[in-house]
């Protein structure tokens, strides 16, 4: 190799170097290729199908080709449909409350349990059990616990001499929110705990010496350092919360009235009960757009923050 390089002319060498460089640049794409093809088939094709279908008046008995093309009609009707709006509102409220509570409780628990006491690993394992249970089972379980007469909650209230609560009737949305918090707080908890345990220990020690109380350590050191993980975790939960289906289906079937009919449930009912595939597809697309906007918004926000910090730094360095 060394000999060849020595004897070959400079031109030949440059040419060879260019060729190697080009090959080097291409290598990642070669490796990405197969994955890209699979993604196109498995992801983009159904997505395109859905978008295509949303422009049609489409009954499940028809193939997509037979369905009549109606342009944006599905989207427009939906926008004017009070039931759809109600459902959208329920979804937004549901997502907002579950993610807020889950983040606060999950991160709080992680901060509380991030210590080396005997038995702590057992406790941690127990905390993540709810997440491992199948959603349908969770729904069934909570439905029984919420039962107006024989359910655990009302029996407990009664034995304490308190009035019983109409869990899945009057307070249906609150009840499903509680069930979701029970199931998904562990998800936030384990990710927050992992983030906590990977924090630089010595920075926390420095903070203790600098005089930070436990609260100040959390507020000024731990939370800011966990923030990147927390943002991603929150985003994942948010996306998931918008798509939750089984638990609510089992617990309330969207009722009473439309009080717990979240979008995913409405989409599934539109497609199966009302047999309007086009409308269901349009609804899915609204949901997709919403999630996309949320995600992009979040990324844009972090970008903006970074850019601002960089600008402040640049300005300061020019000054000095």
């Amino acid at each position: 190799m060394a000999d060849a390089t020595l004897t070959s002319s400079p031109n030949a060498r440059t040419a060879r170097r260019r060729r190697t460089e080009r090959l080097n640049r291409l290598t990642p794409y070669l490796f990405l290729g197969p994955a890209a093809v699979i993604m196109a088939i498995a992801l983009l094709y159904p997505l395109g199908y859905m978008v295509w279908g949303s422009f049609r008046d489409w009954d499940p008995s028809q193939t997509i080709g037979e369905a009549e093309f109606v342009g944006l009609k599905n989207y427009i009707t939906l926008w004017g449909d009070p039931n759809f709006r109600e459902s959208l509102g329920v979804t937004l409220r549901f997502a907002f409350f579950v993610v807020t509570f889950e983040m606060v409780i999950g991160v709080g628990l992680a901060l509380l349990l991030d210590r080396n006491i005997r038995g702590m690993s057992m406790l941690r394992t127990m905390f993540i059990l709810p997440m491992m249970i199948a959603p349908v089972v969770v729904g069934l379980m909570w439905r029984y616990m919420y039962h107006p007469t024989v359910g655990t909650f009302n029996r407990t209230l009664e034995s304490l001499g308190l009035p019983s609560v109409d869990w899945l009737g009057q307070h249906a949305l609150m009840s499903v929110i509680i069930a979701d918090i029970w199931q998904w707080t562990p998800f936030i908890f384990i990710l927050a705990l992992a983030a906590l345990q990977s924090l630089p220990r010595s920075a926390l020690e420095a903070a203790r010496i600098d005089g930070a109380t436990a609260w100040q350590q959390i507020w000024y050191i731990k939370l800011p350092l966990m923030m990147p993980v927390l943002i991603v975790t929150g985003l994942l939960r948010l996306i998931d919360a918008f798509k939750v289906l089984e638990v609510i289906l089992v617990m309330t079937e969207g009722g009473p009235g439309l009080s717990t009919e979240i979008l995913a449930l409405r989409i599934s009912r539109t497609a199966t009960e009302f047999r309007e595939l086009g409308v269901a597809a349009a609804m899915s697309n609204y949901l997709l757009l919403l999630l996309l906007a949320l995600t992009l918004g979040m990324f844009a926000f972090t970008r903006w923050q970074e850019a601002r910090a960089a600008k402040v730094r640049m300005a300061a360095e020019e000054d000095s």
Partner: peptide, 11 residues
Amino acid sequence: MVFQDYALYPH
């Protein structure tokens, strides 16, 4: 204290 591994606050 000055720590052997500096222990600065990264953020």
